[in-house]
Design a protein around this nucleic acid. Structure first.
Lengths: 149, 149
DNA sequence: CCAAATTGGTCAAGTTCTTTGACTAGAATG
DNA sequence: CATTCTAGTCAAAGAACTTGACCAATTTGG
């Protein structure tokens, strides 16, 4: 939400971030689907927030900014399709860790290739110096905007 | 979609953009709602893409990356709530321009204040030089990622 | 140590959002 | 003009997401 600008007000930095994000999201998802992994956008948005060592549902829900019920629903679907599995969390009897399966990692590999292709395009457009600076600035911004950290 | 990183791969620039965007989106929406404008996130996402001079539904749908039916549904709701109106497009008998009403502009004003507050926080965190550079880089990226332009 | 409060997760039901498909009316093309 | 394209709507179904109630395991504090 950044709403329309009254004549002359520049477009918000927020929307300026959303535009490339959406572009990447769509292309990466299209590549994954084309590679034979018919996942949906909503599933992908949860999936992309999974930690390599396994994530708890509550964590995941907070990171993806949805309720735990919504996250649970999407994880159920991903589990049924074989992309993730739930294993008991040894540290907490209530919790279960959601982990990426080998099939899930295949999808990740495809996503990563497309993602790197896009980042390379961006780097060509911005130049190496500005690209690196962009990443650093975004990482710095994450410190004050990521509820997950 | 950027998917989890296999050990050591840095988090994607895409997700790094999404994190601050979501933060801003939520705070701005919360401010607008608190000011007595009970709009939803989906409505806001369409609303924020409205052009000050009026937008066509098809344009809006493309900018917000949803079908024109979805955009139409949300515009219907915003219209019923008095935030936008549809007027005939003098240039095209098929089209109608979606315009922000005075009530809509009240909501915009509230949003703008909160948005500027957040951007000021970001600028404090990054410093003036890096903030300006961040905006410039994102604007440059828009050139190759915005389907709207 | 145990009662109370908190946290992780599920079940159920309903709402909101979004899509696919089919269609009408006006505009552009040739 | 006839054809093709574009703007938008209607209808129906499906996907995504929420609120509310609940259970079991963990943590807290007396």
């Amino acid at each position: 939400m950044t709403i329309i600008e009254p004549e002359g007000t520049p477009i918000s930095v927020g929307v300026l971030m959303l535009i490339p994000y959406r572009h990447m999201e769509q292309r990466v998802l299209a590549a994954v689907v084309a590679a034979g992994h018919p996942i949906t956008l909503a599933q992908a948005r949860v999936f992309q927030r999974l930690d390599a060592g396994g994530s708890r549902l509550t964590e995941l829900a907070r990171a993806a900014q949805v309720t735990k019920q919504a996250a649970g629903f999407l994880v159920d679907e991903l589990e049924r399709a074989g992309y993730v599995e739930r294993v008991a969390d040894p540290r907490d009897g209530r919790a279960r860790l959601i982990r990426i399966t080998p099939r899930g990692r295949e999808a990740v590999a495809v996503a990563l290739v497309e993602q790197q292709r896009i980042e390379a395009e961006w780097e060509r457009h911005l130049g190496a110096r500005r690209s690196a600076e962009l990443r650093r600035s975004l990482e710095a911004l994450r410190e004050i905007t990521d509820p997950w950290i």
